[in-house]
Design a protein around this nucleic acid. Sequence first.
DNA 1: CGGTCTGTTGAAGGATTTCAACACTCGTGG
DNA 2: CCACGAGTGTTGAAATCCTTCAACAGACCG
Lengths: 250, 250
Amino acid sequence: MSKRRETPLKNIKLEKGHCSIGVRLNKLGMVPFFQELSESDLEKVNQHFRARHFDRGDVIYREEETASLLRIVVAGKVKLVRHTLEGKDVLIDMLQPGEYFGSLPSIGDEKYMETAIAQTQACVLSVGTDDFRNILNQYPSVAVKALEITAGRLKESQEQIKQLRTRSVENRIAHVLTMLSDKFGEESEVGLLIQVPLSRKELADMVGTTAETASRIISRFQEKDWVSTGRQWIAIKNQEKIRDLSQDKG
Amino acid sequence: MSKRRETPLKNIKLEKGHCSIGVRLNKLGMVPFFQELSESDLEKVNQHFRARHFDRGDVIYREEETASLLRIVVAGKVKLVRHTLEGKDVLIDMLQPGEYFGSLPSIGDEKYMETAIAQTQACVLSVGTDDFRNILNQYPSVAVKALEITAGRLKESQEQIKQLRTRSVENRIAHVLTMLSDKFGEESEVGLLIQVPLSRKELADMVGTTAETASRIISRFQEKDWVSTGRQWIAIKNQEKIRDLSQDKG
DNA sequence: CGGTCTGTTGAAGGATTTCAACACTCGTGG
DNA sequence: CCACGAGTGTTGAAATCCTTCAACAGACCG
């Protein structure tokens, strides 16, 4: 039954110089935080950032480490994971260019609560939380923007909690598939392809189930010809059905 | 087995005039948002707020209603609930004086995502989101504070997601009991009493289970003499055991 | 003093996990 | 260049936790 195709995922090769100081300013203006800043303000803010490249699988920071930097993805994808004592993983978020992570300036919050790992090759900007605090105080629009973004994420988290409590695993998987395809989807000859390498285990860790159950459900979707899939990739062929399942009409 | 006692909960009777314009300014200074403001700034900010009293069970606003006000609890407790299409409830948060709820100023976020209900008699301040946006832009320290608080809630939400995915119902109940006792606990002759009226159903809605299961587990705790409980109240007698369970050693 | 709401307890049923075995893919080193 | 091994995905069967359905008891309210 399994006619596996080769991965249709784009292999985003970042050039060596891609993650350099030169492009930083350029990218920074596209980050939602700073959209309302003038050219000159942007340039000043830019001074405080450092850029760094990561390869796939690289750990950017680890849970429990002392937190002192705010980071922004400018290229590639980054995943945030929490580990539990029993060895289970919870995949909190999958970040796109423009999104922030790490530590916001705050009072006693000195440890990272999650581990950040490069899911593809990635370029990440970082700024010290003290520097960022100054930026916030100096440019209120940045603080308001940051607040909006964080409030938005809070809403998403709460939505996820609601899902976890009231929906079946099948519904929840349908839900993350629509979320991921909204965020990372690209049309391709195999369907609406989610442009991130994603294993069954990772999918399971996003909806709170086991790799086995995720596999069973994806197989079921495949039988019905709603998705096509292979090693580390999934594409959606019937968006309507998946979206229906992700809501309630099952 | 059930020797029920009368409720040991304080019946916080708010005086009629308690929630009036006079006390507003006084209270406002204690709200974390505004802690760093000077007296005179506080007075200016105060102009924009209105105060209102709610009785137990009153709906402050409803899911799906158009959102235009940011609110702050200044007396009493307020619960935030999400309803699902299948008629299940998810209790998102239980708020104390000083905490905010309602809508932060944001772009397209025009509907409330949850329903707010007074859990006890309560006094609530409100401010239009546009007014609040101006406040944020004028007093960066307020924006930074709001950001910190919201980021803190996001962390809590993520912690809750982790719990939901990896812990048993028993562990999760132990966890909310410790959370609630940290937030609302008061020493009393029956143990560390959670100073909020709380039914089995509500407890269940906090951890994502059914009232029956919650009842079974509380009964089990009671047999072991770890808690004492009655209609709408719970007190913790053995904090250590409950805290252990809430972590992992169970 | 009944009616309703809340809490308790039992038993059956169901969704998901866990354990286990196997197939396929990919990269690496001989 | 091929073979091997680790990582990834699939599938089955048994076990488990939790829900659902149901009946009842105590508490509060008018």
